[in-house]
């Protein structure tokens, strides 16, 4: 399975590269008009990352990102089409125009911004290192000689890899659940993960809750939009802005994260 995931990553990279080189990818479009004309907003949402996106008993997506997507479609007066994605294929979905927006707990980096545009932040997120009480770690240097689990290819993975001393053993898992299971079952001592995921995990495992050791990085989530779509980007920003003011984002945040939205830095 590990080998397979690596292949997926290579394939994703190949497609990204092809996109950068292909003339179609650079062409300006007007997705905003197209969406309104088609009457459907296609949004990539997570299905394996509670509480941003997970599944209900009918395997339909649900979560904060799903609610935000639904709200935006309502604003546009169009139907919503939810496309469940993983962190490995959400970017190809956007680049190949199979979705209009990526609302999938996406963190902003200069590298990612080369391939897509980012909206103003709409969701809180910080990644940190978490572990059981008996593991003594308070700073990145303390990770020396420790084993840390992380979901492959996530921002947590990228930041941890940069931060950890050379003799820290980083074990990469296919998704959040696998990394979480590794730390619960003791295969790794620590986990690098988002705060919200750990909160969800602690709720399910009351006896074995994980403590925050240190914060790796604040990284509020943005909505991803194809490059060269200033109208759509502006519209999304306007929608986020107005829903921050009218309290509907706060309401969803209380529902899924258990707290109102914090103040975000401006993008």
């Amino acid at each position: 399975m590990m080998r397979i995931r690596r292949c997926a990553a290579v394939a994703a990279a190949a497609v990204s590269l092809a996109l950068v080189l292909s003339p179609a990818a650079r062409a300006e479009g007007n997705s905003l008009d197209d969406i309104i004309k088609a009457g459907v907003l296609k949004v990539a949402v997570p299905q394996d990352f509670p509480p941003f996106g997970s599944v209900g008993t009918d395997l339909k997506p649900e979560g904060y990102d799903v609610d935000v997507a639904t709200l935006l479609a309502k604003d546009l007066g169009v139907k919503i089409e939810l496309v469940p994605v993983t962190s490995a294929n959400r970017v190809p979905y956007l680049q190949t125009k199979k979705v209009d927006l990526v609302i999938s707990s996406l963190g902003v980096t200069p590298d990612r911004a080369k391939t897509m545009s980012f909206s103003e932040p709409y969701a809180p997120y910080f990644s940190g290192v978490f572990g059981h009480g008996d593991v003594k770690v308070a700073a990145p240097a303390d990770l020396s000689g420790k084993t840390i689990g992380v979901a492959r290819g996530t921002l947590d993975d990228l930041s941890l890899t940069k931060l950890a001393p050379a003799d820290a053993v980083i074990k990469r898992y296919d998704d959040q659940a696998a990394a979480a299971q590794a730390v619960i079952s003791g295969q790794v001592q620590l986990i690098a993960s988002g705060n919200v995921a750990i909160a969800a995990l602690n709720k399910e495992n009351p006896g074995k809750s994980l403590d925050e050791k240190f914060i790796i990085k604040q990284s509020p989530c943005s909505i991803g939009i194809r490059r060269g779509e200033p109208d759509l980007l502006q519209w999304v920003n306007a929608a986020i802005y107005s829903h921050k003011l009218d309290g509907s984002l706060d309401e969803m945040s209380v529902k899924w994260f258990g707290a109102k939205l914090p103040a975000f830095p401006v993008l």
Binding site: S54, V55, L59, A177, Q181
Partner: peptide
């Protein structure tokens, strides 16, 4: 199986 595990934490 993997998305259900992400909700239930019962791999």
């Amino acid at each position: 199986g993997s998305v259900i595990t992400n909700v239930t934490f019962q791999p």
